[in-house]
């Protein structure tokens, strides 16, 4: 009963594209406990969305997923029938998407879309379903929820639409909610509100929440644990404090250097960045995936793919360096950046 809500092991997604095979997700392990918020963080293109979509069974038709298992409360759903998937989606796992402007169907009223989902999964009368929709819209902070029921998506602001999406996700009291960049498309002022709302809802309902973001700066205070992804792999895991306070992987270090710290970053001062771009993932790996962008790269790093090393329970890093950030020379970053700018 108290086991994790979601256990993903050895997830991999291959996409055959004109002759070659892209491998945008290579080896992802992920566990979400009851009442836990796990943030998946990484630059865009590192396979976060595809990971989320494979958990939902919503990958594009061309994609070939495989895994050791994807368990939802013990049930392996990776080989579920389409029928079983439809029962699970929206009812026990719900997803919130990045762009609230396009995620709702513009042709139907907010209320009708919510009622339709509820009645797909529950035998409940229309009026009861409407009452539930109003209750949830109120709960996620949509003002005058009764009036919103008869409005169309285009009559609502982006922030409101994302609140509607969150209410939609909560309709059937799911065990797991996956939010894929839920604030990326919103104004900065609204972003914080929506994140706070997600955190409050998660704490109140005790659902498992997977929060996907490319911005390591937004997860503090929201996530319990952080999973850092790079090039289709998990490169570091740990609690929020561990990963933000003492990052072990050079990639995490680089991500943190590129977050502006209020008060510490002076006007006009240039932020750090990670030189290079996320490489296109195709073929099998013959070295550490981060090799080309790593300021601490050593000869051993080119020797072959690097396995994840467990430092402590729930704390792991995919790196050959000693797990002691204090022993590294941060000056290497600056030199590395300068070379990148020069070349």
């Amino acid at each position: 009963m108290d086991g994790p809500i979601l256990e993903v092991a050895g997830l991999r997604v291959d996409i055959p594209v004109d002759g070659s095979t892209l491998r945008p997700v290579r080896r992802v392990d992920l566990t979400v406990g009851r009442g836990e918020t796990v943030a998946i963080v990484g630059e865009s293109g590192c396979g976060k969305s595809l990971t989320a979509l494979s958990i939902m069974g919503l990958l594009p038709r061309s994609a070939r997923p495989s895994s050791d298992h994807v368990r939802l409360k013990g049930e392996d759903i990776s080989k579920a029938s389409p029928r079983r998937w439809r029962k699970l989606r929206g009812d026990r796992i719900a997803m919130i998407f990045q762009d609230p402007m396009t995620a709702l169907d513009p042709c139907y009223r907010i209320g009708d879309q919510m009622v339709e989902i509820l009645r797909q999964h529950r035998s409940i009368s229309r009026s009861d379903a409407q009452a539930r929709a109003v209750e949830l819209l109120g709960k996620v902070g949509v003002p005058t929820p009764e009036e919103r029921l008869s409005q169309f998506p285009h009559q609502l602001s982006g922030g409101l639409r994302q609140r509607v999406m969150i209410a939609m996700a909560l309709l059937c009291e799911p065990e797991l909610v996956i939010a894929d960049e839920p604030t990326t498309a919103l104004d900065v002022t609204i972003q914080a509100q929506i994140l706070r709302l997600l955190r409050d809802i998660q704490r109140e309902t005790g659902i498992g929440l997977v929060l996907i973001t490319h911005d390591l700066g937004v997860v503090a205070g929201v996530a319990d644990r952080i999973v850092v992804m790079y090039g289709g792999e998990v490169v570091e895991t740990g609690t929020c404090d561990e990963v933000l306070g003492a990052p072990l992987h050079p990639y995490t270090e680089g991500l943190l250097r590129s977050i502006p710290v209020p008060g510490e970053t002076r006007q006009g001062e240039r932020l750090g960045f990670i030189p290079g771009v996320v490489p296109r993932q195709s073929g099998e790996q013959t070295s550490c995936g981060f090799l080309k962008r790593c300021p601490y790269a050593m000869a051993e790093c080119a020797g072959g793919p690097v396995a994840i090393r467990d430092i402590a329970h729930g704390r792991g890093v995919r790196c050959l360096l000693p797990p002691d950030p204090g022993a590294r020379d941060p000056g290497l970053w600056t030199r590395f950046e300068t070379e990148e700018v020069a070349s």
């Binding site: 998937w85 929206g90 998407f97 169907d105």
Partner: peptide, 21 residues
């Protein structure tokens, strides 16, 4: 489109997704 992905992500039956959405 995104809203069809949403309809699928919420477990709506295939005919609803195809005809309605």
């Amino acid at each position: 489109s995104d809203h069809v992905r949403t309809a699928r992500a919420y477990g709506l039956s295939p005919w609803r997704v195809i005809i309605k959405h």
